[in-house]
Design a protein around this nucleic acid. Structure first.
Lengths: 66, 66
DNA sequence: ATAATTTGTAAAGTTTGCTTGACAAATGGT
DNA sequence: ACCATTTGTCAAGCAAACTTTACAAATTAT
């Protein structure tokens, strides 16, 4: 799965730590999701999308391997 | 987290088993997600939403406990 | 240049998603 | 009433998400 978290963070000018705080997880969790080390739960996807005021699909996209 | 899988299945007239097959998981997994026993990964949420041709947010919604 | 913030990554532990196999209850069709 | 399909749930096991602690590398600000 691909994600555009880094891009949306840049657009909203917030750090991984701040995003983590806003969605209630550790900074490492945000980093791991952003760098594709693991796939978040739907709850986190919804929360991240909500922070960026975007639909989930604008932040996370399936790729061929999914 | 709430979900409207049952409603969308009714609308598309497909069983839990068929949905499971379409997204590549077991029937029990679909049942467990639909009945709220656990929260699916974002990959599954995207696949389920895709089957129903709906945005993820139309199928899954955060509730107060999330 | 140097100090402060941010980012990447690792290891170890706990929790939760997802699997298979199985069985009973419910629903639908004839 | 009977058979077939669907749904709900349980248990045991494996894989993956997420946590904390910790440290180094990279970026940004002064």
């Amino acid at each position: 799965m691909k994600n555009r978290i880094k891009v949306w963070r840049a657009e909203h000018n917030i750090s991984q730590g701040e995003l983590a705080e806003r969605i209630g997880v550790s900074r490492q969790t945000v980093n791991s999701i952003e760098t594709g080390r693991y796939v978040p739960s739907t709850i986190l996807a919804l929360k991240i999308a909500r922070v960026f005021e975007q639909p989930v699909e604008a932040v996370f996209q399936l790729d061929e391997t999914d």
